[in-house]
Design a protein around this nucleic acid. Sequence first.
RNA 1: GGUAUCGUGGCCGAGUGGCUAGGCAGAGGUCUGCAAAACCUCGUACAGCGGUUCGACUCCGCUCGAUACCUCCA
Length: 494
Amino acid sequence: MESRLFLFNTLSRSKEVFEPISPPFVGLYVCGPTVYGDPHLGHARPAVSFDLVFRYLQHLGYKVRYVRNITDVGHLEHDLDEGEDKIAKKARLEQLEPMEVAQYYADRYFIFMDALNVKRPSIEPRASGHIIEQIEFIKKIIEAGFAYEVNGSVYFDIEKYSRKFSYGKLSGRVLEDLMTNTRELEGQDEKRNPADFALWKRAQPEHIMRWPSPWSDGFPGWHIECSAMGARYLGEYFDIHGGGMDLLFPHHESEIAQNQSALGHESVKYWMHNNMVTINGQKMGKSLGNFITLDEFFTGSHASLAQAYSPMTIRFFILQAHYRSTLDFSNEALQAAEKGLKRLFAAIGVLEKLQASETGTGHPQSNEIKKLKDACYEAMNDDFNSPMVIASLFEGVRIINSVNDKKESITAEDLETLKKIFNTFVFDILGLKNELSGDNSECIKGLMELVLRIRQSSREKKDWGTSDQIRDTLSELQITVKDGKDGSTWELGK
RNA sequence: GGUAUCGUGGCCGAGUGGCUAGGCAGAGGUCUGCAAAACCUCGUACAGCGGUUCGACUCCGCUCGAUACCUCCA
């Protein structure tokens, strides 16, 4: 590909040409889940969005090391709740070891991400496994003079940092506003400034997740894990850091400050943020309690779901919107995605059997097919515009069906191009797969051939009763029969 | 209050200073024993008000509205 990849850098709020720091290698870090609950649709969005990035970069020939962390410590429930973190709280409620909770939900996360055909990242480090790295990182920040210790806890000194650097450059925040607008919370008296954030928190006696450190037995602050693990696995300077838009502030802003302080420079070249999934126009999130888990989507077991939606429907639904737009959930929208996806795969089934005709008879779509390929690449190169890719693919669907209906013809060369486009973009890049083709054994194929031959002979005798009975019975078995000009075909699914 | 994003036809959702997004739903037609599928045609959508321009849905300003972040959240 001679055309260049552009991506939207949150830092500059503009599309920039993607130029890796040391090609062909690319370092990609994405904030993963905090494993204290079942994954919901909101978790699927960044996973799928950055899976698309991962897949496309690989397609372009880059050697990508993709790191996505698992947060299993350190998220404070509130600053004022005496340092009980999310994992620990859940553990006490369920009478489980904190690590048992983390393990359970991490496993659940992997299961659902696998179902969504999200590729496993190269490395999935856990915060709890990198306490030493985090302590070392904090030490460097203290040595640089941008953190202070109070009663065994360590805080980042924003006021001091701001004298030399800009805290707020990523999120467009102004320090004075932060100072005045930060809510007054109890239990913050240790901080010199309300905007300061914790790097290390001393654990209260009842707190069960704790590790020794030079300052106290305690646990790391929320933002430090990404700084430490990013540097550990991708180096002090790497290409892309991604995550949800809700992490922009304070999480990523603080991460920049930590790295600048400890390393003397920033670590990330391109910041990418996916937008939120909304439900009734509102963000779907843990705190609002309006989330629908992926398990509920796959089984249809949620009051606001009209039916179950398959993993690929969810994936397709996500990919039909650009990653930087909000995506509004509704049954109508999901059903539309389901039908569209089915149409796409039906066409792919047809494409495999499509015959090329002799050249020379005028193939009006020949030029169109080349344009289609270019359009797909242009869309991906323009900040991973998957909806545009999908729109182009549906142009291809139209061509495939028209050729199948003998309304258009296609040369062998164009047919190859078309197959290549679909294989590359549908399967490799968009990461979709046909959920209905799993049961396509030789045995079934043979049986279906037999059944359809019997039905054909009854049709020839105009024995519509028998012919319709066969079709209806097959339909009950989730097999659809389509009568075409050159005989009948069948496919799984209604 | 501050910061940012956005407001597109029945629904979802792209995009652009003048030329078709696409999907789903709907209407009509072709095909067909019926059905399904497929194909063709169609609806003159860009929050409102000004401004720039030969021309704006697209640029600028204002108004209204929505959302996100400012506290844990993907």
